[in-house]
């Protein structure tokens, strides 16, 4: 598999990045190097192997349903890019 500059732009949209055409060209080369390295995986047979999501097979610990958090929005918003009336402001979003 190799990634074209167009595909790079599609992936960029998914992760909300923007690249110029020449950046996408350079990236396409670098990413294709990485992908061919990654594809060495295919040399190993993994039939009948269970995928592993966590480094050790752990089980989820469940927390008691207790309210432990207090209002600290002023503190949290002190470094926020834009707020008003306790709300975080973003460019208009229309459904």
């Amino acid at each position: 598999m190799s990634l074209s500059p167009d595909q790079i732009q599609q992936l960029a949209r998914l992760v909300r990045l923007k690249f110029t055409e020449s950046e996408a060209d350079d990236l396409s080369e670098q990413l294709n190097d990485i992908i061919s390295m990654v594809e060495q995986m295919n040399q190993i047979d993994t039939r009948h192997i269970q995928p592993m999501s966590h480094p050790q097979d752990m089980r989820l610990r469940l927390r008691k349903d207790i309210v432990t958090e207090k209002d600290r929005h002023k503190e949290f918003q002190s470094g926020a890019p834009a707020t008003d009336s306790g709300l975080y402001l973003v460019p208009r979003v229309v459904e």
Binding site: R63, I66, V67, T68, E69, D71, F76, Q77, S85, L87
Partner: peptide, 17 residues
């Protein structure tokens, strides 16, 4: 998280880390 979910709270007063 341990943040409350009461209805009608002031904006972001129940928004924990």
């Amino acid at each position: 998280s341990g943040a409350p979910i009461a209805y009608g709270a002031h904006a972001n007063h129940q928004a924990c880390p």
